[in-house]
Nucleic acid binder design. Sequence first.
DNA 1: CATCTTCTCAGTAGTTCTACCGAGAAGTAC
DNA 2: GTACTTCTCGGTAGAACTACTGAGAAGATG
Lengths: 222, 222
Amino acid sequence: MTVHSPSPHASSKHTRVLLADDHELVRDGIRARLQKVPELEVVGEATNGRDAVNLALELRPDVLLMDVSMPVMNGLEAAMEIRKTRPDIAVLILSVYDNPEYVRGVVQAGARGYILKDISAAEMITAITSVASGGYYFSSAVGPTLVGANTSAPVEDPYGLTDRERQVLTAIARGQPNKEVAKDLGISVRTVESHRLNLREKVGNKNAAQLYKVAQDLGLLD
Amino acid sequence: MTVHSPSPHASSKHTRVLLADDHELVRDGIRARLQKVPELEVVGEATNGRDAVNLALELRPDVLLMDVSMPVMNGLEAAMEIRKTRPDIAVLILSVYDNPEYVRGVVQAGARGYILKDISAAEMITAITSVASGGYYFSSAVGPTLVGANTSAPVEDPYGLTDRERQVLTAIARGQPNKEVAKDLGISVRTVESHRLNLREKVGNKNAAQLYKVAQDLGLLD
DNA sequence: CATCTTCTCAGTAGTTCTACCGAGAAGTAC
DNA sequence: GTACTTCTCGGTAGAACTACTGAGAAGATG
């Protein structure tokens, strides 16, 4: 972790920013962008969530610009730590993955914004200014998630389900017992049971009630 | 409705703002605030939603800063109109009521932000810049609503469930088997079964998978 | 051709849930 | 007090699902 010397222009009008990302290249890029704006000052850098929390407590930045995925402690856990101890520090989550699904969790973790890697310099600065002034900022791509819509970008299947398994999952989530599913798909009940067990295995051994949630997350319902 | 003459400083870098509020005093205040920022230009004013839509189509502003409550057509309806015809115009909702309850509806109506009347000039400018640059901006007061907090308007229970039944339903939806639910609530498995059967009776004989949906609809989860 | 995955099906045993039955204790309403 | 609801608990039976096992057929991949 790194502590930067105060800039000679430091004043109360400046927004003090702490960077946290495990990729030096990304940090360099962000710093280069922010250096162009005199009102923004990068006061330190961290390479994991734990360091970010410690540095935030020490430096008390206005904004903590932090990647979600970092070693030791990820951005969400770090955001929760920050909220518990210093809720006045605005956490702005920078996701290198274009995954709006995180948004809810991010806000629940106490973050004040969520921006994507493909953001422009101008928008990144706007986002930092936004959270620094007390608001919430979200990249345009996360709109559907904000309104609770099923993103219609069906979410790439994180479980590696097969087509048949998806069919079975859909039917189960609709509330059909195995016997009906078997009838509808024209296969044996035992086969449906096999698929069902494989599903539970793949998605993490959740039961029937929770399979509904998985189906919903995958956009299989509606 | 009013159309302002182009400022002599107009350029592509400027953000063109259309104001919509039925109170002249509010419009004057906003205009006074925005005039201090050379990058922002108020290109017109409307006093109701219908005029706002018409003016927006004519002037094609970057941002439409609009009150929710207006005569003839309110801000939400106007926002929906705008989204249908010119989704590139960022609608920023200004609520004179401190009511974060609107937030979801506001975003669903196509708005890109929601700010409250007691906002500072600096934050208002930040908000306008945020939505103009393609992001979403929300005043800090709306945080609880953003995270999907149950906003204390828990969706009137259409099934007439009792408190205990809601508890059981919540646990079931989380995927807990009856035995665990019984342990957690300190009651017999048979009692949980009774509640479960009563639940199925009340909500329309849905099975475990579908009970998740009911619990979710009632806002019991999250 | 050998290998892998997917989809298919079955045996066996155990657990969990469903569907009825009935009933006592506690609190509220009239 | 009587009536009502809510919450509690039990018996019994059957249906449904879980948890292992193994395995054949079809298709893609190398």
